[in-house]
Design a protein around this nucleic acid. Structure first.
Lengths: 148, 148
DNA sequence: TTATTACATTGTAATCTTTATAATTAGTGT
DNA sequence: ACACTAATTATAAAGATTACAATGTAATAA
C-alpha cells in the first residue's frame, strides 16, 4: 500500500470523524494535494481538476481548502506573492523557497522550541506555534546563472 | 539627537546615494514608518498622511513602498491576512504575532545561521536569508480571555 | 535664467484573489 | 426511497494592488 494511499485514507477518516461529508470534489482535491509535490495555489487545483469536474466552481476549491485547514489536514502558506499556497500536512517540516523560479522544497529541522520559549519570555505572549522559511536560489537556477 | 532623527537622516542619505529623489511624500512616508511602533499597511499610511497631503494618491504610497523595499530601507511583511505590512529596517529582529488582535511585537534572537546552513546542505540551495515568526496570544488578549 | 529631460505624482481604471449570496443539487441516516 | 442537511454552483461583490496616461516638479545643461 503506497504512502499516498495511506495519507488519503487517513484524511478521509479524519473527515468522517469530524462529520465532514466526503464528496467527489473533496476526494479529488485531497488526492491532488497529496500526490502534488509542488505547493499549489487554489487556482492550480482548480485548473488541475477542471478536466475531471468541468462544472466545479472555484468557490468549491476555496471552501474546501478552508474546511481542510480547519480540520488540520492542510496548511495555508502565505508568501509575498499574490496567492496562498496549500500544503497537505504530513510530518512537520520547513520550506526553502527559490527567489528566482518560486520552487518550494521541504526540509526537516528539529522544531525551534527554544525560540518559542525566548519569544514567550520577552514578549509575554502565550506562543502556540511558529513559521520559518529560508530563501535563496535553487540548484537549477544557480546553474542557469553560471552559464550566462 | 533622537534615534528617530538618526534613522530618518540615514534613510535620506541612502536615497541620495542611490539616486532616488526625496519628495515631500517620500519624506513623510519614511517619517511615519520610523516613528510608527505598529507595522502599518499601505492603507494605514495613506490614511495617516491624508491630513498633510489631501491630494496624495494611494498609488504613491504603493510606489514608494516598493522603492523603499528595493533600496533596502523597508521590509514587506506578508501574513495570512488581506494586506501587506511594512517595517522600517533597523536592526535584525523577529516578530511575535497575536492571533486574537493582530498585534505585532518585535523580539530579538540570534540569527538562525545553523538552520540556514542545514537547509542549504540538504536542499542544495544558496540560502540568502530566512524569515521566522511566532504566533500566539498577547498578554492583553490573554487577560481578556480569563475575564470571560 | 531658461529650456530640456527625466522622474514623481495623481486619478482612475483594470486586474487579481478571495469571499458572500442565493438557488440548486447531492450525501447521509432512517 | 425520503427527508434533512450540507455542499456545490454561478455569479456578484469586496478588497488589495498594479497599470496607465496626463500632469506636475526637480535636476541638468545650454
Amino acid at each position: 500500500m503506497s504512502h499516498e494511499h495511506n495519507h488519503l485514507q487517513e484524511a478521509l477518516d479524519t473527515l468522517k470523524e469530524t462529520g465532514v461529508r466526503i464528496t467527489p470534489q473533496r476526494h479529488a482535491i485531497l488526492e491532488f494535494l497529496i500526490q502534488s509535490m509542488t505547493h499549489p495555489t487554489a487556482d492550480d487545483i482548480y485548473k488541475a481538476l477542471e478536466g475531471k469536474f468541468p462544472n466545479m466552481s472555484v468557490a468549491t476549491v476555496y471552501n474546501n481548502l478552508r474546511v481542510f485547514r480547519e480540520v488540520g489536514l492542510v496548511k495555508e502558506l502565505t508568501y509575498g506573492d499574490a496567492s496562498s499556497r496549500f500544503d497537505f500536512v504530513t510530518t512537520e517540516h520547513y520550506h526553502a523557497i527559490c527567489e528566482d523560479c518560486g520552487k518550494i522544497v521541504d526540509f526537516h529541522y528539529p522544531g525551534l522550541d527554544e525560540v518559542e520559549q525566548l519569544a514567550s519570555h520577552v514578549t509575554g505572549f502565550k506562543v502556540s506555534h511558529h513559521r520559518m522559511e529560508v530563501y535563496g536560489t535553487c540548484p537549477e537556477c544557480t546553474i542557469n546563472k553560471e552559464v550566462h
